[in-house]
């Protein structure tokens, strides 16, 4: 079972994503709503992939990603950003990435989310 960590300050989002992914039976999902403790949680969970919200209070997604990247053992964990302030059009095409990571526009459809997760877990 692949382990996925979702970091978003809105609990309703992490909860709904967790329920959806777990219902598929292929993932173990962990949620984190406080960006300041996100790195700590990630170190404990050792996820295979991280879903990361961009706009969060206190610490934004970019900063959390930078922290994760510095943490031994987490450098190569793929990150998929989730962001509310871009349009779908902007997320299409290969150039849609922040610092080399993919990003998806909220609200994201379950099938798109699963496809993106799978494409990262494959390689």
């Amino acid at each position: 079972m692949k382990r996925i960590l979702i970091i978003d300050d809105e609990a309703s989002i992490t909860r709904s994503v967790k329920l959806n992914l777990e219902a598929l039976g292929a993932y173990e999902v962990y949620q984190e709503n406080d960006p300041r403790t996100a790195v700590h949680t990630a170190r404990e969970v050792r996820p295979d992939l991280i879903l990361l919200d961009v706009m969060m209070p206190d610490l934004d997604g970019g900063e959390v990603a930078a922290e994760l990247q510095k943490t031994p053992g987490l450098q190569h964990v793929p990150i998929i950003f989730l962001t509310a302030i871009v349009s779908n059009e902007e997320t299409q095409g290969r150039e849609a990435s922040i610092g080399g990571h993919d990003f998806l526009a909220k609200p994201v459809d379950l099938d798109v989310l699963v496809n993106t997760i799978e494409s990262h877990l494959e390689d």
Binding site: S12, S16, L19, A23, A84, P107
Partner: peptide, 25 residues
Amino acid sequence: AAGVAHEVKNPLMTLGMGTDYFLQR
């Protein structure tokens, strides 16, 4: 637009995911 997007698309995400959950079953 950015403000509205943030405030509206996050709840939409919850709604969308919730709907997807029930659509899956």
